[in-house]
C-alpha cells in the first residue's frame, strides 16, 4: 500500500502539489489523471524519492520514503517513463539487464530472465540485440517495461508510458498492459492525461488539477457522480469510449 498524506511540494513560489492525500491499495492499478501542470508526475517522483516533499509524508507499505530508506524502497519499485527512457548507447538487452547486473546476477540467470520478460512483453528475441533508435516507439516502450520488471518488484510506477505513441499502437499496448497488470498482480501507479487510458487501466483514479485533488474514485464515479463541474469538463474535453468498447477504436488523445 502506498499512502500519501497531506503532501505539499513547491518549485520556487509555485506549489506543484498542495496538501495532496491519496491511498493506493496493493495489487491494484491506480491512475493519476490530469493535464500537464496538474502535479501528477511530481507525485510519482515523490513516491520514488527522486524529490522530497516540503510538507506531509509518503509511506510505502508502512515505510516512510526518506533518504535513508530510499535505496531499500527502490528495490521494490520499477519505473517506466515516456518513450521508454532507454540508454541509447546500450542494446535493448543491455538496458533490460542493467538492474540485474547491478545486483551481480550471473549472466545465465540474467539471460533467462530477459527471455522470460520478452515473452511476457510480446517482444521478438531478435529485437533485443538492437539499439533503442533501431526500435519502433512501441518496441522501446516494451523494453522500458521489461527493464522495470527485471527484478520482479511488487510496485510499478509508470509516467505517461504511452505518451509518445501513435493512437493505434497506443490502444494495442493499453490492452496488453491491462492484461499484464491483472496477471502480475502488481501495485501499479500510472500517470496519464488520457481519459481513455485511465478508464481502461485504472481500478482507481485520482483526478488532479493545479496541484490539488479534485476527485478520487472509479471511472464510473467520476463520470456519474462528478465532485465538481471541472470533472465533467475534463472528461468531456476528450472523446471517450466507456470500458468494453472494441480494442483499436481510434480516439483522440
Amino acid at each position: 500500500m502506498i499512502a500519501v498524506q497531506e503532501v505539499t511540494k513547491r518549485f520556487g513560489a509555485t506549489p506543484a502539489l498542495d496538501a495532496v492525500s491519496l491511498t493506493v491499495r496493493s495489487g491494484t492499478t491506480h491512475v493519476l489523471l490530469g493535464s500537464s501542470g496538474s502535479g501528477k508526475s511530481t507525485l510519482l517522483r515523490l513516491i520514488l524519492g527522486l524529490i522530497w516533499p516540503d510538507a506531509g509524508s509518503v509511506r510505502v507499505d508502512g515505510t516512510p520514503v526518506e533518504p535513508a530508506t530510499r535505496d531499500g524502497l527502490l528495490a521494490r519499485m520499477g519505473y517506466v517513463v515516456q518513450d521508454g527512457g532507454l540508454y541509447p548507447h546500450l542494446t535493448a538487452f543491455a538496458n533490460v539487464a542493467l538492474a540485474a547486473e547491478a545486483q551481480r546476477w550471473a549472466p545465465a540467470r540474467i539471460a533467462a530472465r530477459v527471455g522470460e520478460l520478452a515473452d511476457l512483453a510480446g517482444l521478438d528475441g531478435a529485437m533485443l540485440r538492437r539499439y533503442p533508435r533501431e526500435l519502433s516507439g512501441g518496441q522501446r516502450q516494451r523494453v522500458g517495461l521489461m527493464r522495470a520488471l527485471v527484478l520482479d518488484p511488487p510496485i510499478l510506477l509508470l509516467d505517461e508510458p504511452l505518451g509518445a505513441l501513435d493512437p493505434i499502437v497506443r490502444a494495442e499496448l493499453q490492452e496488453q498492459l491491462a492484461a499484464l497488470f491483472a496477471r502480475l498482480a502488481k501495485t501499479v501507479v500510472l500517470v496519464t492525461h488520457d481519459i481513455r487510458e485511465a478508464a481502461r487501466l485504472g481500478q482507481a483514479i485520482t483526478l488532479l488539477t493545479g496541484g490539488r485533488v479534485v476527485q478520487h474514485g472509479t471511472f464510473r464515479d467520476l463520470a456519474e457522480r462528478p465532485a465538481s463541474p471541472f470533472v465533467t469538463q475534463f472528461l468531456t474535453a476528450q472523446t471517450v469510449e466507456m470500458p468494453g468498447s472494441p480494442p483499436g477504436a481510434r480516439t483522440g488523445g
Partner: peptide, 27 residues
C-alpha cells in the same frame, strides 16, 4: 536528467553508473 534519475532508480552504484552510463553518454 531523466536518464540519470533512472540510473538511480535502477540502483546502479556510483562507479558503475559513471562507467556504464555517464561516460559512454558523454563519449
Amino acid at each position: 536528467r531523466t536518464l540519470l534519475e533512472i540510473a538511480g532508480v535502477l540502483r546502479l552504484a556510483p562507479l558503475r553508473r559513471l562507467l556504464r552510463i555517464e561516460l559512454p553518454l558523454a563519449a
